[in-house]
Design a protein around this nucleic acid. Structure first.
Lengths: 353, 353
DNA sequence: AAGACGTCTGAAACCGGTTTCAATACTTTG
DNA sequence: CAAAGTATTGAAACCGGTTTCAGACGTCTT
């Protein structure tokens, strides 16, 4: 009889669920040929065969599995990112840049949040590594131990640089930034400054900012500076610390908030205490945020190029992934001071506010 | 001779790079036994063998590859999330909740940002699917076509619900929310309201908020409401649209900003135009943000439980992933109005501001 | 016409795991 | 003591791809 056999399988296949064997069967070809077709090795195929495979791929809506592919080839197309604190708008802005750059180059991003916890960070590194991410962008939670174990894939550190790490680094010139901020405040007439910062001693960013703060003040006779450590999540602690600072004797006072989250807490605190900026106290915050222009009376910030930091981190990472052997190096951005009313010293100079 | 053979391989292995075959060799066991050990099927092993394997695993710092594992078992431990707009703080807050819930249950999150672009969204769905994510959390960019192709894994939609989708949904009761907001404003004495919203007609959230806005106003004689469409990225357009609204004749005017980003743009606009809230114009913004308490004079918001939305989305997704056959359903949160000075009508009632 | 070469193709091994199945050794039972 | 379980264990197949290797076929030398 000439009756065709009943169709061995339905033609409609769910999105992406067909395998290479299915395609091979449908195209009456071998897995090897299909694989060649997929990997762009088209020259080796006859037009005839290529046509059949092309049709089968289209008909089955076949999408190869990068996972299976990576098993043999090692190329997963995955890059991992560990944020130290996803609550911090800085992290989100950097993430934005990183995600964009990844997508542009056909990589996918696996995101984790260590919350600043070293143990969790360690687990997450292990998890990402087990997924065979091809590179890692890390906003390190703690000292270098966790990172030291990573020997087989490239790592780019952002913002914080634990001592003893020889990884690529993308971040801010914190000493220069702090110098700019201190100069600005003293030029405006504030001479009693407090750097308000979270109590995480081992973080390089903190150390650099503290060092920059001290160094900048050294050249300013008649000015003094305090380091005020605050656990930002506790409003009462913020109130206490800032009240103490403001009750010191001395000249016009200003606060430098070490990051965007801290800026928020400080402004909330001033609000609770009924302090008006800049008359009662001046303020400059690190990290430019949308609302800083809006909060009364406009908050001076030192802005980082966050999108660029994220995108650059990915770019450097992928350069290494693709084998370009640039030696480990630092990419240091400079950032800009955005002066607003919170740090204005007009009232100190007797001008109208 | 009795001299031991030279060590076949060095004992120090890089983090996670050992394979199950390496462990088996080191423990003088078979891959099968090691696999049994790893999958917790310990009862089937003799103490003797278990001890050897345990030691080998520890010595080699072996971490099994979920990728290879997933090939056979289908369980990747991956869940995908597609944000419509990672610039929107709402997305970030939800992401935060989702990331936390994922981590708690041992899943990893793959994040993508569609930027509201349907074509990009389609690509990203294909990419995530090809990685065999076990579930997808989607803040849909457009109509349902993209989602319709997903038949083999569970999907949870957040915030927006394209028509014709039978997926689980987690979001806000927008009609009730809008009713609350309108009631609040009219009770305060504002009777000429504008809902300022992005021009994305097909989005359910928008439709519901518009419908809620109209419905709430229907019961308020003497009040009128405009829908003002604004492309928020263009400040000049915002200025133009709001100036037009405010130049209408009519009673005390107030603006309702449809999301956090829009709230920001509106406040920036008021700032540029020199308008003071609530005397010149009232304002309520959707989405509670840190700075809303700080921007002069304190901005009334309608807050969503963003962390819960993200965490709930993951919870529902994983319930489905693990086979609990709950039928598709909606989880609707209600949110709360946080009244601040921007929507106060004291000046309308002749009280001191 | 035989041999050399090039082109196109598929069988089979491999990547790092899981799982089935059979084999071994040791008990228990009749 | 033989038969039958039972507890351990490993060999091999499999997941969905890539890659090596060799075979089949056609063409070009001499």
């Amino acid at each position: 009889m000439n009756r065709p056999p009943s169709p061995p399988e339905p033609e409609i296949v769910a999105f992406g669920r067909a395998t290479i064997a299915d395609v091979a069967r449908a195209a009456k070809a071998s897995k090897a040929s299909v694989s060649r077709f997929l990997s762009g090795n088209v020259g080796a195929l006859s037009n005839e065969l290529r046509g059949r495979i092309e049709a089968a791929v289209a008909a089955l809506a076949y999408h190869p599995s990068p996972i299976a592919r990576s098993l043999k080839g090692g190329h997963t197309g995955l890059i991992g990112m560990i944020a130290a604190d996803i609550d911090n708008p800085w992290s989100v802005a950097v993430l934005h840049g990183a995600e964009g750059a990844c997508q542009q180059r056909g990589f996918s991003l696996m995101l984790s949040n260590s919350g600043g916890d070293t143990a969790r960070e360690h687990k997450m590194i292990a998890a990402l590594l087990s997924y065979r991410v091809e590179g890692l962008i890390v906003n390190a939670a703690g000292p270098a131990q966790n990172l030291a174990a990573i020997t087989d894939i490239p790592v780019v550190l952002i913002d914080r640089k634990p001592p003893g790490c020889s990884f690529d680094f993308v971040g801010l010139d914190n000493v220069a930034a702090m110098d700019t901020v201190v100069r600005h405040l003293t030029a405006e007439g504030f001479c009693d400054l407090a750097l308000v910062i979270q109590p995480v001693r081992h973080v390089s960013t903190r150390q650099e900012r503290v060092a920059g703060f001290r160094a900048a003040l050294k050249g300013m006779p008649g000015c003094r500076g305090d380091i005020v450590e605050i656990e930002q999540a506790d409003p009462a602690a913020v109130d206490r610390a800032l009240t103490a600072f403001l009750s010191n004797p001395g000249g016009p006072k200003a606060v430098i908030a070490a990051n965007g989250l801290m800026t928020l807490r400080v402004v909330q605190c001033f609000d609770r205490l009924g302090l008006r900026m800049p008359r009662d106290v001046g303020l400059v915050g690190f990290d430019e945020l949308d609302w800083c222009a809006l909060a009364r009376p406009g908050i001076t910030t030192f802005g980082q190029p966050t999108y660029d930091i994220g995108a650059t981190a990915v770019r450097r990472l992928l350069a290494r992934v693709s084998g370009e052997h640039t030696e480990a190096g630092d990419t240091i951005f400079t950032g800009t001071l955005i002066a607003r009313a919170s740090s204005s010293g007009r009232h100190l100079r007797g001008e109208a506010a």
